[in-house]
Simulated scan of single mutants.
Amino acid sequence: MDRNIFLTADRFPLVRDIGRNRTEGLYTHPDRLLEYDVFLFVVEGSMQVIEEGIEYVVGENEHLFLKKGLHHWGKPETLLGTAWYWIHFTSPIDERIEYKHLSVVPELENYFSSHYQYVLQLPKFGAAALNHSTEDALKSMIESYRKKRTHRMTEISVQAYQLFLNLHQKAESREHANNKADAHVSRILEYLNSHAEEDFNSKQLSEHMSLNYSYISATFAKQTGQTVIEAHTRLRINKALHLMRTTSLNVSEISDQLGFQNPFYFTRVFKKILGEPPSSYMNHLYR
Rank of each mutant, 00 (worst) to 15 (best):
D2E: 15
P106C: 03
L163M: 05
R268D: 13
T267D: 12
F220E: 06
I5T: 14
N283Y: 00
H168Y: 11
K124S: 01
V42M: 02
L285M: 04
I237T: 11
W86V: 00
K222R: 08
E107W: 01
H29S: 11
L165I: 00
A129W: 03
V269R: 14
I142E: 13
Y145H: 15
V42C: 08
Q257H: 02
H88D: 03
E276P: 09
L258N: 06
E198K: 13
Q162R: 00
M153N: 13
S103F: 04
E60N: 12
Q117C: 11
S194F: 00
N4F: 05
A129V: 06
L108Q: 03
E143W: 03
D199T: 10
Y85F: 06
V15T: 13
L243S: 02
E98D: 15
N201R: 08
G19S: 08
A171R: 08
F112Q: 06
E230R: 05
M153G: 03
T246E: 07
L34M: 00
E95Q: 09
E175N: 01
E77P: 04
I216N: 08
D31K: 11
I87T: 06
R11C: 12
F6R: 11
I18E: 06
L26F: 12
L66W: 02
E207S: 03
E135F: 07
I18G: 05
F41N: 07
Y36T: 01
L165F: 05
F89Q: 03
L34S: 00
L243V: 01
H284G: 07
P76M: 13
E60D: 08
R287Y: 08
I273M: 08
A177D: 15
E98G: 13
E44S: 02
E107T: 01
H184E: 12
L79K: 04
Q223G: 02
K75C: 10
A183R: 13
K222S: 04
S202D: 05
K239I: 04
K203L: 09
N4M: 06
E172I: 06
D2W: 07
L258V: 09
G19I: 10
S194D: 07
L7M: 01
N21M: 14
H151S: 10
P13L: 04
N283Q: 12
G45K: 03
G81V: 00
L274P: 06
L102M: 14
Y286F: 08
L70G: 04
R3V: 14
L249W: 02
L102Y: 13
P13N: 09
L64I: 07
M282A: 12
A183V: 09
H151L: 11
Q223E: 12
P92A: 05
G259Y: 03
T28Y: 02
V105T: 11
P76W: 12
Y85S: 00
K67Q: 15
I188A: 07
P92M: 01
L14M: 15
A137Q: 09
N193R: 07
P92E: 04
W86Y: 11
H176P: 04
E155Y: 10
K139H: 11
K170P: 00
P106I: 03
H176S: 15
S217L: 05
T90V: 00
V251M: 05
S144M: 15
Y265L: 15
R96L: 03
I18V: 14
E253R: 13
F266W: 01
D31P: 02
R3L: 15
G275K: 02
V57Q: 07
G81S: 05
L241M: 07
N61W: 07
F164Q: 03
K170H: 14
V42E: 07
V185D: 04
Q226D: 11
M47F: 01
H195R: 10
